[in-house]
């Protein structure tokens, strides 16, 4: 990453603040390439989170102090997060806001842009400084078939960035991180949050959105995700599925343009035909591998490597070779 050419202040949304997810580490890395990076949270960061922020060059964390009625589940509403981001920009006179491309963060980014009169880019694949000092985002669109560049023409730029846009890198020297509170009020009409259960995260496996490797199963699994999971475990990968497989009730989360959109270093699709909907969710992956017993499967048109064969034979064999290779290494 080149050294910052502008004296920008870049705010990165850290929500939740109990951990610093890999997507946020990537945002901090991008932020440092654009200017001085600071974090914004809606709760007290954990000790571990503070240490990681320090390692990534964050000297200041701005922690929102919300009115009592918004400190519970309501603080997760995108309209509340948006007010926090907008207030933090006003407080710090920041030039750039970076947030992950999750559903809630996208809404919050857009609403913050609305409040600030700032240009907004959603799902950026990269963020750079343009020749005139403006922020330029690259996007991969139309199911990964086109690359576009989008210039933000306002003084403040708000962007959500897809996971795996860059390789996260700590700062050259760690810094001490201070937490500073700031008061935030919210005027927007809000729905009441009648119930909220945070999604349980599998501690042994990366999340689908953030994983560097994804193994996904489709109709061809016949409902048995054993071979898919076995290969994912061997690779340290996240597990996903096609929409068909989720509608069949075989798995809970699907990769697709309306499901989880992934762009990992390596994507392996097993028993997935590769309908346009699915391709829209994974075609931006760097390397695509497919296993399918139908030699006419459309997914073969967009792969780098493919095996025509039965996934229940191919995946366990591949997993065994990979495990043996890892043991040697």
């Amino acid at each position: 990453m080149s050294e910052p050419t502008h004296n920008r202040t870049v705010l990165v949304l850290l929500d939740p603040a109990t951990e610093v997810r890999s997507s946020v580490l990537e945002l901090l890395t991008i932020g440092r390439s654009l200017g001085r990076v600071e974090a914004v949270t809606l709760e007290a960061p954990s000790v571990e989170a503070l240490a990681q922020l320090g390692a990534y060059g964050v000297e200041t964390v701005h922690q929102a102090e919300l009115p009592a009625e918004l400190r519970g589940d309501a603080r997760h509403l995108s309209a509340v997060v948006a007010e926090v981001l907008a207030a933090a920009v006003r407080l710090t006179d920041a030039d750039v806001v970076l947030a992950p491309s999750t559903f809630a963060a996208k809404e919050a980014a857009a609403l913050a842009g609305r409040a600030l009169g700032a240009g907004v880019v959603i799902d950026a694949a990269g963020v750079t400084s343009g020749t005139d000092g403006r922020v330029v985002a690259t996007k991969r669109v139309f199911a990964g078939s086109w690359d576009t560049a989008c210039e933000v023409t306002t003084d403040v730029a708000v962007l959500t960035v897809r996971a795996n846009a860059v390789v996260a890198q700590p700062a050259e020297a760690a810094v001490a991180t201070e937490v500073e509170g700031f008061a935030v009020t919210v005027d927007a009409p809000l729905p009441a949050v009648a119930a909220r259960t945070a999604t349980a995260r599998d501690a042994d496996r990366p999340t689908l959105e953030e994983a560097a490797i994804v193994v996904a199963g489709g109709r061809g699994t016949g409902g048995d995700f054993g071979p898919v999971t076995e290969l994912a475990d061997a690779l340290g990968a996240a597990v996903g599925a096609s929409r068909d497989a989720v509608f069949e009730g075989w798995f809970d989360r699907y990769v697709g343009q309306t499901g989880v959109t992934v762009a990992p270093r390596l994507y392996i699709g097993a028993g997935i035909s590769g309908a346009p909907h699915h391709r829209g969710g994974m075609q931006a992956s760097q390397v695509v591998v497919a296993v399918n017993n139908d030699p006419e499967a459309p997914i073969f048109e967009i792969c780098d490597f493919a095996v025509v064969g039965d996934l229940s034979d191919v995946l366990p064999q591949a997993a065994e070779v990979i495990r043996a290779h890892k043991q040697q290494a």
Binding site: G113, G117, A118, G119, V120, V121, V136, R140, G144, S145, W146, D147, T148, A149, C150, E151, V152, T153, T154, F300, E301, I302, C303, D304, F305, A306, V307, V308, G309, D310, D313, V314
Partner: peptide, 23 residues
């Protein structure tokens, strides 16, 4: 009124021919 402007749009290069293996 737009606060962003698309300044470039290019189709991504075609992938090289797939390496296809019959199991």
């Amino acid at each position: 009124g737009a606060r962003t402007a698309t300044t470039q749009a290019a189709p991504r290069p075609e992938k090289p021919e797939v390496e296809l293996v019959q199991d």
